[in-house]
Each structure stands twice: as C-alpha cells, then as structure tokens.
Design a binder for these strands. Structure first.
Lengths: 125, 125
DNA sequence: TCAAATTACATGACGTGTCATTGAATGACA
DNA sequence: TGTCATTCAATGACACGTCATGTAATTTGA
C-alpha cells in the first residue's frame, strides 16, 4: 500500500510545498508592506521589465508564468490603477496589447527586485 | 544590478513555481473529477489517515501543513459535510478537537492516495 | 468576399484562502 | 480563588484566482 518509494515521493512533495509557501509568503509580505504590491504584481512587473523587445506582450507573458490569462488581465488592471504599468493597443493586431512600465513602475521594480532577490537567496539556500 | 547569481536564483524560483503549479494542478483536477474533492481536502485526509495516535489532532495537523488555522477549519467543515471525517471534542481539553476518518473517508482516501502518488511520481520525476 | 472558426483580452459568478476578531476553555499567579 | 493572559477553534469581511462566457479583431476557406 504505502511503499517506501511512496513515502519518499510524499516527503519530496511536502518539501516543495513548504519551500514554495515559505518563500512566496516571505516575499509577498515584504513587498506588500514596503511597496504595497503583492508577489503576483511584482512578477508581472519583473517579466515586463525583463522583455526589452517590443512584441505584443500580454499573450507572451502568459507563456512565461503559470498564471491564467484571466488572472493576468486582473493583475494588469491593478498595476495600471496603481500607475505602475500601461497598456498600449498593438497596431498590427488590435486584439493584442503591449505592456510598458511607467517611470514609477520602473523605479518601484528596481527597488522591489533587490528585496525579491534577497529573499529568494535567503529562502532557497 | 542583475548579477548572474540573481539570474540563477530567479531561474531556480521559477522552476519551483512551475513544478508546484503543474503538480498541484494535475492532482487537484484528477481528484476533483474522480472523487469530488480538492487537493487541500485530500491533504487533510492524508494527514489524518497518517496519524495513528490519538492526540488532539486539529492543532497538530496545523503544524504539518503550510495551511492557516482558519483554512484548516474550513477544509474540515467541507470534509465533515461530505461525510468523510468527523470531529470529536477532546475530553482533556475541551478547546481542542480530535479528527477521525469515517468509513467513507477511509475508503475514499485509499483510492485517492493511489491517484495522488501516481501523479506525484509522474510530475516530480 | 463573406460566413464560420479562431484568437486576444475582459468580465462576472463563484470558491477558497487570509486576516482580524470572537467565544469558550484553560493556565498562571498574586 | 479570582482576575488576567493565553490558547484552540470558528466566523465574517474581504482579496484574489479560476472557469465560463462575452466582445471585438483576425484568419480561413468555400
């Protein structure tokens, strides 16, 4: 029934869960308290900041995160309301959207990224 | 700014996230469709099934999962409504609760665990 | 070229998680 | 022993994610 291999799998899984929750929680709380954004928001900022090219982002970002399309849309809403990002409709295909950091967004991302990296280092050691 | 070490940390973190979401998602969907319970519910069943001793469980279970006390309480609600688990108040300390699987709960856990282990194996390879 | 299928994104209903708080039982100790 | 602090669990308000669906733009192909 419960083979040693099963036990080991379950242990491995619990370890992943623990690491994930501990790390995500720590980052989320830190970003929330210092910059008033959550981990999810930061991850979108981070992805946008990371893409220097000018492709139609929204769609492509979706391919680089486990988030749902619907979740993405709402996160971008929040980021836009917070004045950290803006949507530009894409001339070539008006269904698509470009995302771009505002100056405020870029500034905040810079500071938040330091915090983010530090907490990753601390938690993934 | 973005040192190679930072890059590597971020890569490692994305990898953990991907594994976590892929695995959790697969298990959740499978359990949901075949047994009408979610991953969270299963994990509580699994913990209860795993503890043979008769300590005041609720509290101790909390120490073995990243879940909040409040989340636990609600999951147990659902499990109880589904007839898979029951709460017994603890004689020694009437603030505490024992949890116990019902027969239905034990039966379901047996089948679901097989599925769970199989999906872990598939996803954590 | 036009109707049907597809694609990109937004939105509303809904489930579940968190935080803050409550209620009840217990513990500490003057 | 009576008061105050602590602990366990439940609950309500709220935030956020998912699913199903809607809307508009684009593509396909007869």
């Amino acid at each position: 029934m419960a083979t040693p291999q099963d036990r080991q799998l379950v242990e491995q899984w619990r370890s992943i869960q623990t690491t994930y929750f501990r790390t995500a929680g720590a980052i989320d709380r830190a970003l929330e308290s210092r910059f008033s954004i959550g981990l999810t928001e930061f991850e979108i900022l981070d992805l946008v900041a990371d893409s220097a090219d000018s492709a139609c982002r929204m769609k492509q970002l979706g391919e680089r995160t486990p988030m749902t399309q619907s979740a993405m849309s709402k996160v971008v809403d929040r980021l836009e309301k917070a004045g950290l990002i803006c949507r530009h409709s894409c001339e070539d295909d008006r269904r698509s959207l470009f995302l771009e950091l505002t100056d405020a967004g870029r500034a905040l991302h810079g500071k938040a990224a330091v915090e983010h990296r530090a907490l990753l280092k601390e938690n993934l050691a």
